[in-house]
Structures are given as structure tokens and as C-alpha cells.
Design a protein around this nucleic acid. Structure first.
Lengths: 194, 194
DNA sequence: GTCTATACGAAGATAGAC
DNA sequence: GTCTATCTTCGTATAGAC
């Protein structure tokens, strides 16, 4: 049910998703919403946001296990590219939805803030362990998260994965430079520079 | 009325804003909504999105007149920093709202896509005229737009302008490097590198 | 052009039976 | 725990008077 909510929030946002939608999508018993979520929709939104945030954080952590920050950035972008393609550019990031509609559900917005912070810290850790200074690791990891999230929005608006591809290419080369690491350079931005 | 809609969309999104809200905020005659907007809310959303997109594009164009891309990026970020601060982090970018809720209002989503494309092209033009190759100007300008928009979301979620500040600093130094231009370097990222 | 009144539907939440 | 039925509120949109 929480998973269904997260999936639906990706496409339609929090307001755009009714509790009936969630019940229908999850095939859960209709009468049990308020049994499991006494706080109603606000509680469901908060838990779905937290769930989605942790899910993606786990993906980032897994991608970082190869100890290659550039590959992790590439994997992060690739994850979203797939989601965009599979949904015909109608699905985005549920955490962004929770943020934008967060004035009415502060708990969900706070969960969104925590999720972004977690992703960014995971990346910052990886950068630091590659010799990047702490302050720079902080700003660079924030750039990566912000740019990818923004690129998803641009791609949805233009119904094209081109913005995400371009941003991913730029990020890969920026991270490669910062982390004093030169992996196989296949990104568009890199080939242009040469 | 269009202006009011854009202002409200920034804070509450398209779904979160009712036509009554728009009437109340704009102090326009209640009975005339469907006279001026026969297409109803969808039409209002589309025109508000277009209006906001052009408004911001004009700001970018003005900032670019000094022929200093770095300063333009700084001005772009500063614009949003003010909006965030003045609204206590409850206002964001109306174009993003139109994008996320665009499945129900395709016209507004298309206007959002056009707005992003316009901003990006303005920046790309400036980069090209500073000697950046066309392809790289394209990806770099996309990065700037995406990163700033994403940073606005992060700042709203965390109710802090720190993410926007960090991203702006990174972008300024990236753009400075790419445009073969070394203005007074005051950004955090640059001072860390030294 | 602008008004009031209202139709119509949707959504969140609750009540009480089983 | 889960069901059905219902209450209430709210939002879009329309109708028809002025």
C-alpha cells in the first residue's frame, strides 16, 4: 500500500492521487485504510515518502560499493532514465512531489528533506574517501542530487530524455575531475571537450 | 489574474490552487473567469505558465546583457534565493509545478517545456559567444537550468537556502572554467579548490 | 461583462454492521 | 480487520438574471 502510494505519487503527485487510487492500485482492502493509517492521507504520504527515499538511498549505496563515484553518478542517472522511458515521461521523483505539495503535509515534506540529505551524504562520503575535501564534497554532492532531480523535471516537461542525458554527461566529467579519477570516458560532454 | 495564478502555483501547485483562490488573490470579478478563460482552469494554467516562463526569461536576458555568463548564473540563483527567503521556503518555481501536474493539463506542461528550452537557449547563446563549442554550450546550459531548479526543490524540502548556495557556487566555477573567463572568484567551491 | 445560484462530481473521513 | 454506506466539504463548471 505504501509502495503503491509512492508509485502513484511519482506520476500524479500527492494531491493528484486519491485514497481510492491507492486502494485500487494496491488491491488492498478498502476498509482498512484508516485502520493502518489513522492519520489518514497525511500519514500515508509521509510513510510513502520515507519508503521511497530509503529505497533510492539503498540504490545509491549499492552503486557506490564499486568504489567508483563516476559510475555511481552514471547509475543514479540511468535509474531515472529507465523510469522516464518506461512511463513515457509521466513518472518523476516522488520525493519532489512530496516537497512541492508539502505546505499541507509538513511531515511528508520533512521526510523529503531527510531523503535528499541522505542521498547527498552518501555521495559526499564517497567523494571524501576519494580525496575530495569535506567542504567541496558537500557542495559537489549537492550539485549532483539537485542537477539530476532538475533534469528529471526538464525531461518530463519536454518529454525527452535529452536533458537528463546532457546533465548526466556533464556531471560525470565534473565528478571525474574532482575525484582525481579518470575512468573510461564515454560521456557526451567528455568527447566534446577533447 | 494570470499573474495571481502564477504566484499561487508557485506555492501550492496547480491542483492545490482553486479558481476561488485565484479570484480572491487577484481581486478580480468572480463571475468573469469563464468569460476570459472559456477553457477553464486548464487554459488559465497554460497562460500562467507561459507568462511566468517569459517573465523569468526576460530576467535571464537582462542578466546576460553584461556579457558575463558567470554573473548571469549568479543573478539567476540570486533571484530564486530571494523568492525562497521571502516566502519562508514555501514558494518555488511555477514551471516545475506545471510540469509535475502536467498529465492532466498537457497544454500547461508543453508551455513548461518551452519555457525551460527558452531559458536554456538564452544561456547557450551566451556560452557560444564566449567561445564554448555548440554541443558543450547545450549541455552546460542544460546543467545550469536543471541544477538551479533542482536546488530550489532541495532548499524547499530542507527549508534552508544552503543547497541553493552550494549549487550556485559550483555552477559559477564550472561556467567560469568553460567560458575561459576568470572573474573575481568568490564562490565557496573555488576557494576550496585553492 | 459581471453577478448569484446551483448542478455535478470527487475526495477525505466517519459510523456501525459483520 | 474489513466491509458498506454515508456525511461533509470542496472545486469545477454551467445557467440564467441583470
Amino acid at each position: 500500500m505504501i509502495r503503491s502510494a509512492a508509485v502513484l505519487f511519482r506520476e500524479r503527485g500527492v494531491y493528484g492521487t486519491s485514497l481510492s487510487d491507492v486502494v485500487a492500485h494496491s488491491e488492498a482492502p478498502r476498509g482498512s485504510i484508516y485502520h493502518w493509517f489513522p492519520g489518514g492521507k497525511a500519514q500515508l504520504a509521509e510513510e510513502a515518502t520515507r519508503y521511497a527515499g530509503e529505497f533510492i538511498a539503498a540504490g545509491i549505496a549499492a552503486a557506490l560499493e564499486q568504489d567508483d563515484p563516476v559510475a555511481a553518478v552514471r547509475a543514479f542517472a540511468a535509474l531515472w532514465r529507465e523510469i522516464l522511458r518506461d512511463s513515457d515521461f509521466s513518472a518523476g521523483c516522488p520525493i519532489v512531489s512530496a516537497t512541492l505539495e508539502g505546505d499541507r503535509t509538513p511531515a511528508a515534506r520533512d521526510a523529503a528533506g531527510a531523503a535528499f540529505a541522505r542521498w547527498q551524504e552518501l555521495l559526499a562520503d564517497a567523494f571524501r574517501s576519494r580525496g575530495v575535501t569535506p567542504a567541496r564534497a558537500e557542495s559537489l554532492s549537492t550539485l549532483v542530487v539537485a542537477a539530476v532531480e532538475g533534469a528529471i523535471v526538464l525531461s518530463r516537461a519536454q518529454r525527452s530524455s535529452a536533458p537528463l542525458e546532457r546533465v548526466a554527461g556533464e556531471l560525470e566529467s565534473i565528478v571525474a575531475d574532482a575525484a582525481f579519477h579518470a575512468p573510461a570516458r564515454t560521456s557526451a560532454a567528455e568527447s566534446i571537450i577533447r
